[in-house]
């Protein structure tokens, strides 16, 4: 799904724009990270993409078609979202019921439904928990069930809206692994909204947002190397990159090379 913002501005009831003349393109099948500090407007962008908010000026195009009140419901059917708080997105008594919920709304036939539930719970490695009560799962497991529920809807696009920010390190790693796997196997358009710099490593493209505007855009390595910019907006690069920056290039060529390798594999 191609998503394009052209000069989009948005304000809530207050006087100032939360999103200021924002333009960007997310290409089909790409994974894009949107990073920025708390309050930078990241979640507002999600809501604009989902059509839950309407721009005050500018326009949004999905697959080159202008988004309007008439077509938004159809467009939204092709988007799934994983929210920040794993406890706020469960409706089912069992994991199976929960994954089935969206499918039931789509009036999918029973057999096909079971197939989809099995397929996607296996993909996120939660197939052993199908009869468990979601309440008894860890945060990372809950988020994986939520991901299976969204995947089962077979939407073109999945949005992760700070999906790891309330998880412990084990949960964060589980979700990051799942993201990596999705990127490789599911050929989806993935948008990941986060302030954790580690999560941008395997994106195709990174947008840095501050105060409702794009302040930088590029490949992960370009963004990670721009320490000055990241600090300016209240973010931080990965510690290994900070170390690379501190070392004398000529004296430590081998170590610097190894540090870059480590940064992208760890």
């Amino acid at each position: 799904m191609k998503i394009e913002f052209k000069n989009v501005s948005f304000k809530y009831q207050s006087d100032f724009d939360v999103i200021k003349d924002l333009s960007f393109v997310i290409n089909t099948g790409e994974m894009t990270s949107i990073i920025g500090p708390n309050g930078s407007g990241k979640s507002t962008i999600t809501k604009l993409i989902m059509g839950l908010l309407v721009p005050n000026s500018g326009s949004i195009y999905i697959n080159d078609v202008l988004v309007t009140e008439e077509n938004i419901l159809n467009i939204r059917k092709n988007m799934g979202i994983i929210f920040q708080n794993p406890d706020n997105q469960f409706v089912g008594v069992t994991v199976k019921d929960d994954i089935a919920f969206g499918l039931e709304n789509k009036c999918i036939e029973r057999n096909e439904m079971f197939e989809l539930i099995n397929k996607y719970s296996t993909l996120v490695r939660m197939n052993d928990f199908l009869d468990s009560n979601p309440e008894n799962l860890s945060g990372g497991q809950k988020q994986r069930v939520a991901i299976a529920g969204v995947l089962a809807m077979e939407t073109e696009t999945i949005i992760f809206d700070e999906a790891t920010s309330m998880l412990d390190p084990i949960g964060v790693e589980e979700i990051n692994k799942t993201l990596k796997m999705l990127k490789k196997e599911a050929s989806k358009t993935i948008i990941s909204i986060t302030h954790n710099i580690e999560e941008i490593l395997y994106s195709d493209n990174v947008l840095v947002i501050d105060d409702g505007q794009i302040v930088a855009q590029g490949k992960p390595i370009e963004i990670l190397s721009n320490i000055e910019l990241l600090n300016k907006v209240g973010l931080d690069t990965i510690e290994s990159v900070k170390l690379i920056n501190m070392l004398e290039e000529n004296n430590h060529k081998e170590i610097i090379e190894e540090l870059w390798k480590l940064t992208f594999n760890m």
Partner: peptide
């Protein structure tokens, strides 16, 4: 510090 951005955390 859970849920805070790097600046808030620091």
């Amino acid at each position: 510090t859970v849920g805070l951005d790097p600046r808030g955390r620091k």
